[in-house]
Design a protein around this nucleic acid. Structure first.
Lengths: 227, 227
DNA sequence: TTGACATAGTGTTTATCAAACACTATCCTT
DNA sequence: AAGGATAGTGTTTGATAAACACTATGTCAA
């Protein structure tokens, strides 16, 4: 797309990319999606999915596109995180990265398939991240901080859930991200009192025990500030 | 710096600027600094101070520089707000703006002097903002949201205060930004219990009434998350 | 000098919200 | 029918926030 040296400027404009921290919860772990880089710099290293902003593309649209390319999902939670612009963050040329983070329910992920700029794609538990290219570790840390604090004062956790879920499953999301056990009774009282979920009327039987009532988000797609 | 057409790219890189929302509190009002634009587009309209990021300049450094140029102050609170990148936000070419906001104590502002790209500079009360160039109104709204919510859970309000201040003055800052009266006794109990300010031992006499004890920030320069 | 006035400073009670804590219910399997 | 596994349910206690009114200390003017 575009021939070489088509666009010239008196000043060297920086290149602008978006990078995305894609969270999911799988197998009782908070995980994020990494790609193994096909090209230099950091060829062969793991890093965040991302890419250059197209000439007429909004920043949000760019992040959404990258997310769809890597995971095949659409309509999930995506929020701008922070813009990283240290002149030396890319060893070659100056690249300013507008970082986003996304929350995807594990159920909605189609099979991962390495995109054009990667030789591999994988989910990594946050406990066991490899060392990352560029300043991507810093970006991940910031995304994690944001996720943890937004858990406290918003309904963001619902964006990890499938359409129907049990209260035990929802509680598990909170416990995994916060890294601590919560009291079942207090959690249920609290989450019900928020008024953001409702019973579907259905139950789910699985295993040799009492079936769980299923709930759904009252306002799916919305992330509201609570408290 | 650099001759014409020195830097060429296969893709048209966007230009990157920083814009700053500079808050202060003057005369019992929350005000912000606007400049009257000297050049097109929006020549003659009011807008936020800001400018292009230099080739080897960090984003924070760029915002800090703009702030110093416009107000002459250094060492005040400055935080990245959000990055605005709608392809049509500038009618001419594509410009991505990394927005910052800053809090300056009214006492530290030297006389305003129009910088090179402006014909005028002025403080405007938020109640009486003129219509603004570009998407600057949107940027201001976002900064205001952030300021109001950070007031709740951080010690950011202290960054509006001079070195020594009375509790009545500090309370006024909270009241002005939140737009509502607060109970004097509850406010004092609360702010003291945070443990972030201490008595200087001095008092200030002014007017025909009892003098006020003066306080100072225990950790000046820091903005801490509370609660 | 004394009384009026203006702002500084100070505690207690009540309501609301968060935390700690243990048992019963329902289904499956053997 | 008994045992095992997870679902579901209330009460008590402590902590934090909200409501509320009077005294203290200075200045100024009569």
């Amino acid at each position: 797309m575009g021939k070489l040296a088509e666009h010239c400027y008196p000043h060297p404009n920086p290149a602008v990319t978006t990078d995305i921290v894609i969270f999911t919860i799988r197998e009782e772990k908070l995980e994020l999606l990494l790609i193994k880089r096909k090209h230099d710099p950091f060829k062969g290293a793991w890093g965040l999915p991302g890419g250059f902003v197209n000439p007429d593309e909004d920043l949000d649209a760019c992040a959404k596109r990258e997310l769809a390319e890597e995971t095949g999902v659409k309509g999930v939670y995506l929020e701008q995180l922070y813009t990283f612009g240290n002149p030396k963050r890319d060893p070659r040329e100056r690249i300013i990265s507008v970082a986003y983070y996304a929350l995807v329910p594990a159920e909605r992920i189609s099979t991962l398939r390495a995109a054009s700029d990667a030789v591999d794609v994988a989910w990594y538990s946050l406990d066991k991240l490899p060392s990352l290219a560029f300043d991507h570790r810093q970006i991940v840390n910031k995304a994690l901080d944001r996720l943890i604090s937004k858990l406290e004062y918003s309904t963001i956790a619902l964006r990890f859930m499938p359409e129907k879920f049990s209260l035990t499953e929802l509680q598990a999301v909170y416990e995994i991200i916060r890294g601590e056990a919560l009291d079942k009774r207090n959690f249920r009282k609290w989450v019900i009192s928020l008024g953001r979920i409702e019973e579907t009327g259905e139950e789910r039987r699985e295993g040799n025990h009492r079936p769980a009532k299923l709930y759904r988000a009252k306002f799916p797609g919305k992330v509201e500030i609570i408290k």
